[in-house]
Design a protein around this nucleic acid. Sequence first.
DNA 1: GTCTAATTTGAGTGAACGCTCAAAGGCGTC
DNA 2: GACGCCTTTGAGCGTTCACTCAAATTAGAC
Lengths: 186, 186
Amino acid sequence: MTRYKVGLATRARILEATRAALAEDGLEGATLKAICERAGVQPGSFYNQFPSKDEAVMQVVREAIQAVDPHPDGAGADTLDDLVDAYVKFVTGDPAVARIYLQLAVGGGLTDARLGARVLRHHRRRQDRFTDALRRACPGLEDREARLRVEAMLAALNGLAFQWLLDGEVDLAGHARRLLAGATSA
Amino acid sequence: MTRYKVGLATRARILEATRAALAEDGLEGATLKAICERAGVQPGSFYNQFPSKDEAVMQVVREAIQAVDPHPDGAGADTLDDLVDAYVKFVTGDPAVARIYLQLAVGGGLTDARLGARVLRHHRRRQDRFTDALRRACPGLEDREARLRVEAMLAALNGLAFQWLLDGEVDLAGHARRLLAGATSA
DNA sequence: GTCTAATTTGAGTGAACGCTCAAAGGCGTC
DNA sequence: GACGCCTTTGAGCGTTCACTCAAATTAGAC
C-alpha cells in the first residue's frame, strides 16, 4: 500500500484534482467522476489510494484549515494584527477553499459528521489564540470581556467573509481593520 | 390545476411535510421520498402540485425569509431594535429553517441557482432597511459611515447565528444588544 | 344521475452517485 | 531475467435520486 513512487505521485495528483474540483464546482460538484477525470485516473485507482471519497475531501480541507494559522504550533507569538491578517489572506487568497470551509461549518456537506466536529474544534482553538492576543494587546481587559469581544469579532469576520464570497463588493480588509480598532479600544 | 379543495389540501400537506423534512434532516435529507412519506402522498401527486422538488423547497424558504422581517411592506417604520430583535427571534425561533437560510446563502444547495440570488436580493433589501433605521437613530451620521456600520453589524449577526447554530453556547441576544449599542454610539 | 376534468396511484424510467473486483500491467528486488 | 506485490484498468454493481405516465378514482357543476 503506497510503497512505490508511482503510487505517491498518483495520490498527489488525486489530492490536487480534489482541490481543483472543490474550488471550481464546490462541495456538491466534487464528484468521484469529476475528481478522477481531473486526475487522469480510474475509480479503481482512486480507491487504491483512499478508502472513500470523503477521506480525500477531508485531507484537502484539513490542509486548508491549517493554512489559516500563521504559526499553528507556536503558542502565543502572533499579534492580533497577524491573526486577523492571516484570516483575511486565507479568505481572499483561496476563496474556493474558504467557501468550502465555511460551507462545512454550517453543516451542509459530507456524509461524515467528523469533518464538522473538526471545523468546530479548530474554531475553538482559534478563538483561544485570538483571546490571548487581545489580552496581550490590552493588559487591563478582564477575561470575560476579552472572550466576548473575540467572539463578536470572529463572528463578524466570518460573516463578512460570507458576504465577500457572495458578491465581492465588501471591503473585507477595511472592515477587518475597523473591527481590530473596535476590539482593542474602549 | 388546483381547482378542487382536495388539491389545495394536498398542496398544504406537502408544504408542511417539506418544512418538517427540512427542519429535521436539513437540505440534503429533504428528498422527494421523505417529503412524500411525511405528506402521505405518492410522487405523482406531488408533481400534480409542484413542477419540481426545488419549487416546494423554494416556497418554504421564501416564507421563512419573509418571517425575518417584522413588517415586510411597511417601509421605514421599524426601529433598529425591532429589526435586530426580529432577526434574533428568527434564528432562535426556527433554528432549522435559519440553518437552511444560511446554508443557501453560502451557495451549497439547490440544483437551481435562483434561490441563491433570492437570498442575496433579500439580504440587500434588509441592509437598506437597517441603514434607514440607523440613520433615524443617529441623524448626524453620514451615509457612507452608516452603510459600513450596518454591513459590519449584519455580518456579525450572521456570523453569530452560525456559531449559535453550531454549538448553542453563544449568547446571541446579548451580543445583539452589544452590537446595537456599538453601532449607535461613537 | 351524468359528465368532465382535477386528482391520485404506483410501478417504472433514466441518470448519477459511490464504490468493487478480477484481470492486466508495471515497479523494484534479488 | 525472474519473481512478488503494488498499481491500474474499466466494466459494472447496487442504490438512490428526481421525475413520468397511463389508468383508476373522485370532486364538483349541471
